[in-house]
């Protein structure tokens, strides 16, 4: 697999279940009640429990390593949250390679759910040495 600027990653569809929200929050040691207690979430003005940012962060990382394989190394993950992930929704992660330089790739990631963009982010990863990439083809190379 050669990595080139403009490459699109296949979408990853993630059903937003209560189980995912609660297990993600607890596995990330985030016990804020809005991530597991629907009544408490309602009292705080939210229609239901919603996914915590640490789970979103983990899912974005997983999306990248699922696609590129276990030998790449994540260097940076920067995410910004928008529309919350509520139970019963589905988030579709999509990604596009935006830069390839010296064995490092940048991928922009968007996670869209039924009410809007849940997450927009940028991931920088180190491609492994035996990972061919289209650096020479990168139109952004000169610009960087």
């Amino acid at each position: 697999m050669t990595v080139r600027v403009g490459d699109e990653l296949p979408p990853l569809r993630i059903p937003i279940t209560r189980t995912l929200i609660v297990s993600g929050a607890i596995a990330s040691r985030d016990y804020q009640d809005v991530h597991h207690d629907a009544e408490a979430a309602k009292e705080k003005g939210s229609p239901d429990i919603f996914m915590n940012i640490l789970t979103t962060n983990g899912l974005v990382g997983r999306y990248i390593t699922d696609h590129f394989g276990p030998h790449v190394r994540l260097q940076k993950v920067a995410i910004r949250l928008g529309a919350p992930n509520y139970p019963g929704d589905e988030m579709v992660l999509t990604g596009q390679v935006t830069a390839v330089t010296d064995g490092t790739a940048e991928v922009s990631v968007t996670g869209r759910n039924g009410i809007g963009n849940h997450v927009m982010g940028k991931v920088t990863l180190r491609l492994s040495l035996d990972f061919p990439h289209g650096e020479a083809d990168s139109p952004q190379r000169g610009a960087r």
């Binding site: 297990s23 983990g58 899912l59 990382g61 997983r62």
Partner: peptide
């Protein structure tokens, strides 16, 4: 929880 089956874990921790 994340559904992450990366074989690099748990020998190392997921960076995220």
């Amino acid at each position: 929880a994340m559904g992450d089956t990366n074989p690099a874990y748990p020998a190392s921790a997921p960076p995220t």
